[in-house]
Amino acid sequence: MEWVNDIIQGLLTGGLYALFACGLSLMFGVMKVVNLAHGDLATVAGYIGVGIIAISHVPVLWSIPIVVVLMAVLGYILQRSLIEAAISRGELTTLIVTFGLSIIIENGLQQFFTANSRGLGVGDSFITSSFTIGSQITIAYFNLAIFVLAVVVLLGLQLFMTHTKYGRLIRAVADDREAAQLSGADYRHVFGIAAAIAFGTVAIAGICDGMITTLSPTIGTDTILLFAFASVVIGGLGSLWGTLLGGIVLGVAQAIGAQINPNWEPLAGYAVFLLVLVVRPQGLTSRGAQS
């Protein structure tokens, strides 16, 4: 059945969505910041990747760690300067600032790269080669690889949160900022690290996305931000694995929608999102009511 194929496809895409979403969720959970520029950061990462490859002819996969580190550092700097200043002035200001960033990034990219789309070529054979299970199910190696990468990153993030000093500190600061200060933690630094992680993970996602589809300046919000947000809402705030579940549900919904009518792919996802918003706003995994 084509359906099974699509569901599996959706599942794999869900991993990528979860990777996009975990940074958004992290920044909201720790600093109560909804970063409207979140999706655009992924696009920036993709474009930086394109730039690096063009200049240094490094294999695409090598560009991932370089870009991730760059973006993580950028995240720390941006957090300690701009976002910290915005937070201290209130939620409204933070929204304006991140929205402004989003517009600036998108239009900036448009200026420098024109509205045309770019792709991070990985080599056609790698992208399209696939294997088959049974007689019906075809899985592209590449999509599987990205899903595995996403799960590995989420696992790594989980381990970081539970087993390292700064992971604990991030959770502590998210729980009670003042009490964490009393234990000697400079919460601004902790916020910076959280932002660095958010930027880094979204960068990985952005490069992977750039390999599958083509980059264009506006996909930062058109697809990424909104899909990431939808994944978080569907899965429930506060849980990394909930976000993965949310991403998978979104991916599957989209795949099924595409099956019915290719134009309905994003709509189907949003339909599920709206359904969850109405019926169970706290998400599928969360226990409490959404704030």
């Binding site: 909804v34 931000l225 947000f229 949003y270 959404q290």
Partner: peptide, 21 residues
């Protein structure tokens, strides 16, 4: 009715989603 209960930041993104829809 769809977005009324959402808090500030989530309200913002939700309106963006609605516009996309």
């Amino acid at each position: 009715w769809l977005v009324a209960r959402l808090r500030l930041g989530y309200f913002a993104i939700a309106t963006w989603v609605l516009a996309s829809v």
